[in-house]
Design a protein around this nucleic acid. Structure first.
Length: 972
RNA sequence: GCGCGCUUAGCUCAGCGGUAGAGCGCUUGCUUCACACGCAAGAAGUCACAGGUUCGAACCCUGUAGCGCGCACCA
């Protein structure tokens, strides 16, 4: 065993052990080892953006996963922690596009074209992708890196296409012209989940329109978006509204665009229940192309849809001469000017409303009518029920309600994106003219027969008549007879995940859909697509469903809910049993960490400065279950200090040498030994219970308390009494160290054995939290030496998780609560003595004489410990009758009165003051208890045990009071 | 608007029916032979507010306020 360095140097230790773990394949999951005795434990990582960098959120999230994985290994489980990354469609494409523009390579992505642009993205991915993986390694993450997956891997991509085709066959995926959330910056549709509502300070504009059939009759319309007036195709009123009902069927003159013929300006007044009497003026302008609700009104009344904007949010020609080319917000101002010029503008009042923002680009989204692919969610009922019934557990539980609420109001998912980076929609189309002559051949050629036979293979065909959009119904067998009127142009859409078929299709003139799929449409397959699905792999058989999922609540709908549905749909089973939702990391001001705010520290800097273990410990300590994490670097510093403390306690043990992990001989155990064994036992129980319930910060504080406040502060100090039996030399010994006798040597050996027992267990308890330093000390202190290779001999990772003491063990070591009590009483004596020092200005290390009056039965070793902890020289034991010189300070302890004789320094006044304060405190407590006991209501109704407690309390305080008063009297 | 959660020492949080707790920070004293990234001692709280239940409430119930989250949203 080499000597430990004076200070802990995380950098070299971390590097060394991480390489060791990798070299020995300590993180590898082997399905063949799974058995009843060795159950599987699995987690799939929430895949970070492949081109992203590590954030504190990742640190929190992955530390938790690592704690779970490492502890599971120590519990003897076969652990799979499956890592990987996500292609993050919009984010990655945006970054690459921006960079290429900045480099002057392109002005627009069209300059390169799809193929060339994608090459650039792959180049980018190869260069920057995987940085985050390296960063996770720095953190100590024990993932099985041999199984790393990427959502754009060929195999994974095939899973995505397969799933698309499966759902397409079931009719759950469809294409349709719908109102979607359009991001004018990213130039793509978004799902509802990617839109966040933000309050806006805008203006409510009131403008007048004239009823065409009744010149002189004007209606006032309130709107926040006057720039959309050119797209209005009606105004709507509530048919029950007496003010306007009679106008339904008439027309109004739409003021914009200005340069239209009178007839072109006319739009109808329609009656619709959607319009509220109270709101605004009760007259609603209807813009079907630019508002979801208006679109629905338009549908109900057969209104034309006039799209007046370009995809990028600028106005098109239909918006009229004055607006064309302007950005939508500039156009608003111009439209307002026009209305003023026309003299139809009424009041303009400040108005706050909520506007949907693109989460990614942080601009208002534009509702837009477009052709998109939608998914009607599968397996919704099972997915909902498994959480409701508790088959899948959420931690904290309250997220189950949020989930339930979303699942109940679930809307079809817009899965297509107008991007290039991602999985391209696996559908090929071609318009084919079908005639009586070629009808049968064409249909059969593209797989119609298997369609009819219900034997799909890897493809699915849909045929739509171009002229009326009618989908050919297979059930009605359209092959025969073929009528003349059935002839015409048909669109053939074939979905397939078979590369050879798609090549064939392309050769035959089919073209692939240009959209790609939402990134989440690939990541919702993560738990099984990473394990080899659709093959029935050993990995899937042994590790699916996974045990735990650890993620942020911000992606509960994006990812968690969808994975649950996909799990049931494609595996027939839930994907994970427990979901732990972390908090969101915030800065001291409570703001979310973000790049733009620049309030997010780089975890790698923190690791470099404090060490990975320190960062882990600090973050875990401040991350309570169910609450957000308020980040403060102080916590990381605290983690660092803690590691140093651990390191130095280990050094302390090491410098005393001797046999390591010697047998504990029960007969030789002192009260302190038994006390620390009991504290350790309690810590084991608490940490185990906390981890079982995902209370990580509780586990962390227990570890902290046990190790620092109990082991180091008390036990380690007390152990010095037997480790330094005769030194430092006291003046009375004449400065000579006495030869240790046999008993002292046995005592010393026992103390070392207890130190080893406690330290070895402590290291194991700490290992999931502090993997590096515990591994280093595990070997440094030689604890690995006696263990079988796979039980801690090679690495602490596989050492068994500490178990609480059994009754037999307690019996064997003769430990019971009375020993704990006795140890605690002695520590109370020490505290009392230190209090006296403080009150009389005696430095804590200055050796002084103490006298303990009234306690006889102190064993020599216990006496030695007391003397040491009190820094007493000597600690004299005297009879209760012993009379101290007047003015000698006294403190009450459970083991009698502790006196601090101060020859020549006695200050009766000071002592009188001190006692006066004590008495006041005791009197206050006594009064409180007595008031309660005097209340008949209390004594009559309270449970007997509580009554007894209070009576006991009264007695104790009364005794103390009497003692203090006697002390005061003897002071004179 | 609907739903959920939070409000305890300067800060971050435990406690969830019977004597208000921890860490950090602060104050004071210590170069005590593992550790100054340390040791010892100490000060510090009408437990958001108002009612109610109870012998007794930080804790249970009702309401109010503030903060946060989710959902919905009316032009």
């Amino acid at each position: 065993m080499s000597e430990l360095a004076k200070t802990y140097e995380p950098a070299s230790v971390e590097e060394r052990w991480y390489s060791f773990w990798l070299e020995h394949e300590c993180f590898a999951a082997r399905p063949e080892r799974v058995s009843e005795q060795r159950p599987a434990f699995s987690i799939v990582i929430p895949p970070p953006n492949v081109t992203g960098v590590l954030t504190l959120g990742h640190v929190l999230n992955n530390t938790i996963q690592d704690i779970l994985a490492r502890r599971a290994r120590m519990l003897g489980k076969e652990v799979l922690w499956l890592p990987g990354t996500d292609h993050a469609g919009i984010a990655t494409q945006t970054v690459v596009e921006r960079t290429l523009k900045k480099q002057g390579v392109i002005r627009h992505r069209d300059d390169l074209g799809r193929e060339k642009f994608l090459e650039k993205v792959w180049e980018w991915k190869d260069k920057h992708g995987g940085i985050i993986i390296q960063q996770l390694k720095k953190l100590g993450a024990s993932c099985d890196w041999s199984r790393e997956r990427f959502t754009m891997d060929a195999e994974y991509s095939r899973c995505v296409s397969r799933v698309f085709v499966e759902l397409y066959k079931k009719g759950l995926i469809y294409r349709g012209k719908r109102m979607v959330n359009w991001c004018p910056v990213s130039l793509t549709a978004l799902s509802d989940e990617e839109v966040t509502m933000k309050p806006q300070n805008g203006t409510m504009y009131h403008f007048r329109v004239e009823v065409a059939e009744l010149p002189g009759t004007w209606l006032t319309i309130a709107t926040t978006r006057p720039e959309t007036i050119p797209g209005d195709t009606a105004v709507a009123v509530n048919p029950k509204d007496p003010r306007y009902a009679h106008l339904i069927g008439q027309h109004i003159v739409r003021p914009l665009p200005v340069n239209l013929t009178a007839a072109e300006k006319l739009i109808p007044i329609v009656g619709d229940d959607h319009v509220e009497f109270e709101f605004g003026t009760g007259v609603l302008k209807v813009t079907p192309a630019h508002d979801k609700a208006d679109f629905e009104i338009g549908q109900r009344h057969g209104l034309p849809v006039v799209d007046i904007m370009n995809p990028d949010g600028t106005m098109n020609a239909l918006a009229g001469e004055s607006l064309v080319g302007l950005d939508r917000f500039e156009a608003r101002n111009v439209a307002v000017d026009r209305l003023r010029e026309l003299g139809v503008m009424g009041k303009e009042e400040p108005y706050q409303n909520n506007v949907g923002y693109s989460e990614r680009a942080d601009v208002p989204i534009e509702p837009r009518l477009s052709e998109q692919w939608f998914l009607k969610y599968p397996s919704v009922e099972q997915a909902r029920a498994c959480v409701a019934k508790g088959e899948m557990k959420f931690f904290p539980e309250r997220w189950a309600k949020v989930y339930e609420n979303w699942m109940e109001n679930i809307q079809d998912w817009c899965i297509s994106r107008q991007l290039w980076w991602g999985h391209r929609v696996p559908v090929w189309t071609k318009t084919i003219t079908l005639t009586e002559q070629n009808w049968t051949d064409e249909l059969l050629r593209w797989g119609w027969d298997s369609y009819l036979g219900g034997n799909w293979g890897d493809t699915c065909i849909r045929v739509t008549k171009v002229s009326d959009g009618r989908v050919i119904d297979t059930k009605a067998d359209p092959l025969t007879p073929v009528t003349a009127e059935a002839e015409g142009e048909y669109q053939f859409a074939i979905a397939t995940f078979d590369d050879s078929i798609s090549r064939e299709l392309e050769a035959a003139g089919f073209t692939q859909d240009t959209d790609v799929l939402d990134t989440w449409f690939s990541s919702w397959l993560w738990p099984f697509a990473t394990m080899g699905w659709p093959e029935k792999t050993d990995t899937l058989a042994k590790f699916y469903p996974t045990t735990d999922l650890v993620t942020g609540p911000d992606i509960i709908f994006f990812w968690v809910a969808r994975m649950i549905m996909a799990g049931y749909e494609f595996m027939g089973e839930l994907p994970f049993r427990n979901v732990y939702f972390t908090g969101i990391i915030r800065d001291k001001q409570g703001r979310k960490m973000s790049k733009s705010l620049g309030n997010s520290p780089d975890p790698l800097d923190l690791i470099a400065q404090y060490g990975a273990d320190a960062l882990r410990f600090g973050v875990m300590r401040s991350a309570p279950l169910g609450a957000d994490v308020s980040y403060d670097e102080k916590n990381v510093e605290l983690g660092r200090n803690f590691c140093t403390k651990l390191w130095n306690a280990a050094r302390f043990r090491q410098m005393h040498g001797g046999e390591h992990e010697a047998q504990i001989i029960p007969q030789l155990l002192s009260a302190d030994d038994k006390w620390i064994l009991l504290q350790l036992d309690r810590a084991v129980q608490e940490v185990t219970a906390a981890l079982n319930e995902y209370r990580f910060s509780d586990a962390t504080s227990t570890l902290y308390r046990f190790f620092w406040s109990e082991f180091c502060d008390w036990y380690l100090e007390a152990s010095k009494a037997s480790l330094f039996p005769s030194s430092p030399a006291s003046p009375e010994d004449g400065g000579e160290a006495a030869e240790p006798d046999g008993e002292a040597l046995a005592r010393r050996a026992t103390t070392l054995a207890v130190l080893d027992f406690v330290l070895a267990n402590t290291l194991r308890l700490f290992h999931p939290f502090l993997p590096f330093i515990t591994e280093e000390l595990w070997h440094g202190l030689g604890y690995s030496e006696d263990m079988p290779a796979d039980q801690g001999g090679r690495t602490i990772m596989n050492a068994p998780w500490p178990k609480p003491l059994t009754n037999d063990e307690r019996h064997y070591m003769d430990i019971d609560p009375s020993h704990e009590e006795f140890a605690r009483q002695r520590y109370d004596v020490v505290n009392a003595g230190r209090g006296l020092r403080r009150d009389f200005n005696i430095g804590s290390s200055k050796r002084v004489r103490f006298i303990l009056r009234g306690y006889g039965g102190l064993a020599p070793h216990d006496h030695a410990v007391l003397q040491l902890l009190l820094a007493a020289d000597p600690l004299e034991l005297v009879e209760p009758e012993w009379v101290a010189p007047k003015g000698t300070p006294v403190a009450l302890t459970p083991l009698g009165e502790l006196l601090l004789p101060l020859e020549g320094l006695i200050d009766a006044t000071a002592e009188r003051d001190r006692l006066g304060k004590e008495i006041a405190k005791v009197e206050q407590e006594l009064a409180k208890v007595r008031a309660k006991l005097a209340d008949v209501n209390f004594t009559a109704k309270v449970p007997r045990q509580v009554l007894a407690e209070h009576q006991q309390r009264e007695e104790t305080w009364a005794q103390k009071l009497a003692q203090f008063q006697r002390m005061l009297e003897t002071l004179g």
